[in-house]
């Protein structure tokens, strides 16, 4: 077990940033800490790195108690949202930094840096300054710099948050492939559920300083522990007293299906390939439904149409928490 976090609490003044965190992060996997802004996920990452001290509890990395260890001794690679490039040093010197601090022989440093430059595809840029690189290139440089010290864990704090949507998507595909190749235990923080679902082996959902659920992307999506997790991983609506995803609802234009909830279409909105309906059901509840354009045409629904709503077979539903 690579990282063990036990009984961690962290307060900033009166604000409880982390409350009773117990978590085991397995070796060699890519784990996402997912949650809304201010939920404590970055604080947890910084506690693992040793950039923040937990008020109580312990952090064990690769079997070594790291709770009182300063960041310099923990041998963790840390990658920042805004790259934290050493602006006055070339790409090569940036990557070599950790090895130079460790006073490794020059030949060894050069060989290692060449290898990493190739790994992150920056060989042609080795003598440039960070200012001459694009955002994506800078973040790859930061990643190579963190990997140079052969860290026991690689920690990434919103690594793609400062990049535009296209580069972001390319870079996270690339991170996934890089990880499959390098196999270093990796923890990354994100507030983007799509990013977490796509890249991570395991997701830890954190909200209000507490862990809501830990599991694989499929487990979380198919069996969310509560309404928060369900709502955070995708759109959610209410149907017949339970929470359900809007695209998991079948729309019938005639009564008769078992368990159908009758209602009336009050709004209809076409967005690209999907049609979003708002249906007011008998008890005054408004349910959001998403159907494909073809389905909408086939059933011929319009505002004012009477419809009967049935959860799709195999749909995930969650009972809402009592308010």
């Amino acid at each position: 077990m690579s990282i063990e976090i036990a009984g961690v609490n962290k307060f900033f003044g009166d604000f409880a940033a982390l409350t009773d965190i117990n978590l085991t992060i397995p070796t060699g996997q890519l784990t996402a800490l997912l949650g809304p802004s201010g939920g404590g996920k970055s604080t947890l990452l910084r506690v693992i790195a040793g950039l923040e001290d937990a008020d109580t509890g312990s952090v064990t990395i690769e079997g070594t108690d790291a709770t009182a260890m300063p960041v310099q001794k923990r041998n963790v690679g840390f990658v920042f949202q805004h790259y934290a490039a050493f602006k006055h040093l070339s790409v090569r010197r940036n990557i070599a930094f950790g090895l130079e601090i460790r006073k490794r022989p020059k030949a060894e440093v050069n060989a290692k840096v060449d290898e990493l430059l190739e790994l992150v595809h920056l060989t042609a840029w080795a003598d440039r300054k960070p200012a001459q690189l694009s955002g994506g290139q800078r973040q790859r440089m930061a990643l190579a710099r963190a990997l140079a010290i052969e860290p026991s864990v690689l920690l990434l704090d919103e690594p793609f948050g400062a990049l535009d949507a296209k580069v972001r998507k390319e870079l996270r595909d690339w991170l996934r492939r890089l990880h499959d190749e390098v196999h270093v235990t990796t923890v990354f923080v994100t507030h983007d559920q799509e990013e977490a679902l796509e890249v991570a082996d395991e997701i830890v959902v954190i909200n209000d300083g507490r862990i809501e659920q830990v599991g694989s992307p499929d487990e979380l999506y198919d069996a969310p522990a509560n309404d928060f997790v369900m709502g955070f991983l995708g759109d959610v609506t209410r149907l017949g007293g339970v929470l359900i995803r809007p695209h998991d609802i079948d729309v019938h234009t005639s009564a008769g299906a078992p368990g159908a909830v009758a209602g009336e279409v009050v709004r209809l909105n076409r967005v690209g390939f999907e049609v979003r309906l708002t249906v007011r059901t008998g008890d005054g509840e408004e349910t959001a439904v998403v159907v494909t354009r073809a389905d909408a045409r086939a059933t011929d629904v319009a505002v004012g149409s009477p419809v009967w709503l049935v959860p799709h077979r195999g749909a995930t539903t969650v009972a809402p928490l009592p308010a």
């Binding site: 190739e118 790994l119 992150v120 595809h121 994506g136 296209k166 580069v167 690339w174 190749e181």
Partner: peptide, 9 residues
């Protein structure tokens, strides 16, 4: 080396 996306951004 893992092929990298072309750089934009």
């Amino acid at each position: 080396a893992i092929p990298t996306p072309l750089d934009g951004g």
